[in-house]
Structure formats: structure tokens, C-alpha cells
């Protein structure tokens, strides 16, 4: 059982939870995820860790209401507990001093991007972050992103905040004006697909963090399999980060609809 110590409602669909998990807080690195289960009949669902607080022994997860299970979690309040949580899982983000790193996060994908932005900055990179969402109220964690970014570009589909346009427009702007050595993208699969196409056009190496259906999250079931460079890989143990230019996003999007 992991107790919820704080809850921040970002929008009616996006909620941030700070959850007691001292062991995970201690061992997690940027890029890791956890598996969460709420209730004795609950499903096991993966979430990438947004941040952790070693002193308080907590981790933060940002969760978007999309289906039954995320709904259940979002309805929890401070003092309630997550029935089961295990992690940290997956491979940590590969960090090095690349030079300039472009971090492109869409919607709730900005949350798992946050620790990568921080880690990339601390690794000595110049970090340019592009945050994108449909509308102003869905832009999350902007302030925290600014703390570790040399520059932040905000894009909204409807132009209600920052520049009007898609994330790809923001990405292209940066690549056209300065050399970018590495790009990281996290967000909805369709967004990552187009972000990857854009960076491929300019030959900028790009990592995408994938969020697929999982059951155990430890390599046991293979529900999370994706095709990367023509080979089947397991997101849970081989990922969640892969070379975005090699990922078959169409197959991934198809598989995400398996139980719809």
C-alpha cells in the first residue's frame, strides 16, 4: 500500500499525485516507470515517474483520465492509498553531454519528460524544451520545465497560449535556427510519430519514450511488444525509450486499441 500525500489538479483531466514510495524514490532514475494497481480487482497500469523527493520518500505521477483505471486513480484523494505499486522498471534514460538537446513533450507527456530535462541539463547540455497541448489549460509543469531549460517554447493547437501550431512546428523552428545534437520526445503516439518524422528530415537523433499496454511490466507477458527497426522489442524491459526513427508507430497505435 502506498499512501497519497498530495494531489494537484492540473485540469479536469490531468491530476498530479505525490505518493509515498521511499524505496522507489531512492532507486529511480530519469526514464523509469512504475506499475500501479488500484483496488483488489484493479488492472496493472504503467506510469513513467515525473519526479521524486528523497527526503519525503515520495514519487510524483501525473495521470490523465483516459480509461477506467486512470479514472480510478484520479478519483483518489490525499490519505487514500494505491493498492500496489512496483518499480522502478525499464531502462533509465541514456545521459551524456550531447551539446544541445531538444525536449519535445506533448500533453501529459511533459510529466515523464521533466526528469529527463533535469538530467540532461545536469549532464551539461543546453536544453531547449518545446511544450505542446491542444489548449492553454492542458500545458502542464511549465514552471518546473523552465527551471532546467535554457529556453522554453510553448505551442497550442488553438493558439490560446504561446504560439499557435503543432509540436512539429516548434521542433522545426529550433532545428532551423541552431544545431541540435539530440532530441527526446514524449507524448501521445501520434504526436511522437510526427515529431520523429520531423527530426528525421533533419537527421537529428531522436529518442521516444513509449507507453504501451502492459500486464506485469517485468518482461513476462509481452503485451507491450513493439517493432523497432524491424525487430520485436518489449517496452517494459528493453525500453521504454527507443530510437524514434526506428519505431513502427502505426503498429503501436493499432496495438494500443487492442481492448477498445
Amino acid at each position: 500500500m502506498n499512501k497519497i500525500v498530495s494531489k494537484v489538479v492540473f485540469s479536469d483531466r490531468v491530476v498530479s499525485f505525490e505518493i509515498e514510495a521511499p524505496l522507489i524514490a531512492k532507486s529511480r532514475k530519469a526514464g523509469h516507470f512504475v506499475i500501479v494497481r488500484v483496488g483488489k480487482k484493479g488492472e496493472r497500469v504503467p506510469y513513467t515517474i515525473a519526479s521524486s523527493d528523497l527526503k519525503k520518500g515520495t514519487i510524483t505521477l501525473v495521470i490523465q483520465r483516459v480509461g477506467k483505471s486512470s479514472q480510478k486513480i484520479c478519483d483518489l484523494e490525499v490519505g487514500d492509498s494505491i493498492t500496489d505499486m512496483v518499480g522502478p522498471l525499464g531502462q533509465a534514460t541514456h545521459l551524456e553531454k550531447f551539446g544541445t538537446v531538444l525536449c519535445a513533450g506533448g500533453g501529459v507527456g511533459v510529466a515523464p519528460m521533466l526528469p529527463i530535462i533535469e538530467a540532461m541539463k545536469k549532464a551539461g547540455n543546453r536544453v531547449v524544451s518545446v511544450l505542446a497541448a491542444r489548449t492553454k489549460e492542458l500545458i502542464i509543469l511549465e514552471e518546473q520545465v523552465r527551471t532546467f531549460s535554457d529556453e522554453v517554447i510553448v505551442m497550442t493547437d488553438d493558439g490560446s497560449y504561446g504560439q499557435k501550431g503543432l509540436i512539429t512546428t516548434g521542433i522545426e523552428q529550433v532545428i532551423q535556427r541552431e544545431p541540435v545534437d539530440q532530441c527526446v520526445t514524449i507524448g501521445p503516439a501520434i504526436m511522437m510519430k510526427f515529431a520523429a518524422q520531423m527530426t528525421k528530415k533533419y537527421n537529428v537523433p531522436t529518442i521516444a519514450s513509449l507507453n504501451t499496454i502492459m500486464v506485469d511490466g517485468t518482461g513476462m507477458c509481452g503485451a507491450c511488444r513493439v517493432t523497432v527497426g524491424g525487430k520485436t522489442r518489449f517496452v517494459c524491459v528493453d525500453g521504454p525509450e527507443f530510437d524514434a526513427h526506428q519505431v513502427d508507430f502505426d503498429e503501436m497505435m493499432m496495438r494500443l486499441k487492442a481492448y477498445n
Partner: peptide, 22 residues
């Protein structure tokens, strides 16, 4: 032995094809 083997044949990642473990 938690890691399921697949046969690596075309169409194995279609929806409805899964490991016995899953």
C-alpha cells in the same frame, strides 16, 4: 523463466496474437 518466446513470423504483433504468459 519469465520471458515468453515468439516465433518471429509475419503478423505476430497483430491484435489477438499473444503469448501464453499474457
Amino acid at each position: 523463466a519469465g520471458l515468453p518466446n515468439f516465433m518471429n513470423i509475419p503478423g505476430e504483433n497483430l491484435i489477438g496474437v499473444m503469448s501464453c504468459n499474457e
